[in-house]
């Protein structure tokens, strides 16, 4: 489910909404921010991991 949401966000949005905008804040910034958000969510998830042994 997460993979499907990520696929739509990472491919669908740039190709339908941002593709024609010739500015840094469009596709370039969108993809970079999406990656940063994924990394932050990933870090938060990893915080919950713990070595119980």
């Amino acid at each position: 489910m997460i993979a499907v949401i990520l696929a739509v966000l990472s491919v669908g949005v740039p190709f339908t909404l941002l593709g024609d905008i010739a500015r840094f804040w469009a596709s370039y910034l969108y993809w970079t921010l999406l990656t940063v958000i994924t990394i932050v969510i990933g870090f938060l998830h990893l915080k919950g991991w713990g070595d119980k042994r």
């Binding site: 993979a3 990520l6 990472s10 491919v11 740039p14 993809w31 970079t32 999406l34 994924t38 990933g42």
Partner: peptide
């Protein structure tokens, strides 16, 4: 142009997801 950015960033996004799911 920027399409190259997308293809590489998607690689990073999916790699993080796959590592969190499969590395353990």
């Amino acid at each position: 142009g920027v399409g190259a950015v997308g293809f590489e960033m998607i690689y990073i996004i999916f790699t993080i997801l796959l590592l969190i799911i499969f590395a353990p």
